[in-house]
Amino acid sequence: MSKQISIVISGYRGRMGSEAVKLVNNTNNYQLVAVVDRSYEGDHSTNSVDVPVYTDLDSCLQSIKADVLIDLTTPEVGVRHTKTALQYGVRPVVGTTGFTDKDLQEIEQLCHDKNIGAIIAPNFAIGAILMMKFSQMAAKYLPNVEIIEMHHDQKLDAPSGTAIKTAQMISTVREAKGQGHEQEKETLAGARGADFEGMKIHSVRLPGLIAHQQVLFGGQGQALTIRHDSFTRESFMTGVKLSVDTVVGIDTLVYGLENIIE
């Protein structure tokens, strides 16, 4: 029988958070013990969950014993919550992006000090992880590459964490180099997108989209496009479950699900 895992969800009223609540409630060995919502606290009878609601993660973890925090908030809050959870000995599974290298170094040190694990995932969709891994494979042979990521118009960061992570993975097999004509000129600033070691990253924000990315490779007489689409936020829950099941058994920081799938 699987060990019972007590879980706190931060950002539970959001679209991702509501899917995470369903996942926890529908998984036999998961128990939802509290949620965090900065705008509400007290009687939870009007909410969609039958557990205590806190506006502050510190207050929550002082009162509630939990094994895992699932954080699906904003970049700024996610960074703070990750560090707070580790301070309380709670293992964070974080789906927000915007972590700097300095943040990741501090979190890695906290994991070491507390001897517990943390997982930060720019993308929880297993198909998106495969898209990144396939792109890394392709870039070894087709080093001319551009990334187009497309998300809903309420997304706060650009480029997306998935696009940046894809570029980082590609950079491990591709030498930094410029692309396009050496004398090309933008007649409108930003037309060629963000630059990552010569790779261009383009961000699209439109209503109706969820999360989509294509990685385009060009070579002599050929082109390759690797694309992933999430049509519903349910697509991310397989990765959330994989992360929760994994984080309880590790004692270090994992950044990106590509590091825990075969």
Rank of each mutant, 00 (worst) to 15 (best):
6 S>D: 12
16 M>T: 14
17 G>M: 09
18 S>V: 03
30 Y>S: 09
31 Q>F: 04
35 V>K: 00
36 V>D: 02
38 R>K: 15
39 S>L: 14
46 T>D: 15
47 N>E: 15
49 V>R: 12
50 D>Q: 14
54 Y>W: 00
58 D>E: 14
61 L>V: 06
61 L>P: 02
61 L>M: 06
62 Q>N: 15
64 I>D: 00
64 I>E: 11
65 K>W: 05
67 D>N: 15
68 V>N: 07
68 V>Q: 00
68 V>I: 08
71 D>N: 14
71 D>I: 12
72 L>W: 02
76 E>I: 12
77 V>E: 04
77 V>I: 15
82 T>C: 14
93 V>Y: 01
93 V>D: 07
96 T>H: 01
100 T>K: 07
102 K>G: 03
103 D>F: 05
104 L>D: 00
104 L>E: 05
105 Q>W: 00
113 D>G: 03
115 N>M: 07
116 I>Y: 01
121 A>D: 04
125 A>N: 11
133 K>S: 13
138 A>G: 11
144 N>F: 01
146 E>Y: 00
148 I>R: 06
149 E>R: 05
153 D>Y: 11
153 D>W: 06
156 L>Y: 06
156 L>V: 14
157 D>W: 03
158 A>G: 15
165 K>M: 01
167 A>G: 02
169 M>R: 15
170 I>S: 05
172 T>R: 13
173 V>I: 00
176 A>W: 05
181 H>I: 07
202 H>L: 10
204 V>T: 13
207 P>T: 10
214 Q>Y: 14
224 L>R: 09
230 S>V: 00
231 F>V: 06
231 F>A: 11
233 R>G: 01
233 R>I: 10
241 K>F: 10
247 V>L: 09
248 V>C: 15
252 T>P: 03
253 L>I: 01
253 L>G: 03
260 I>Q: 04
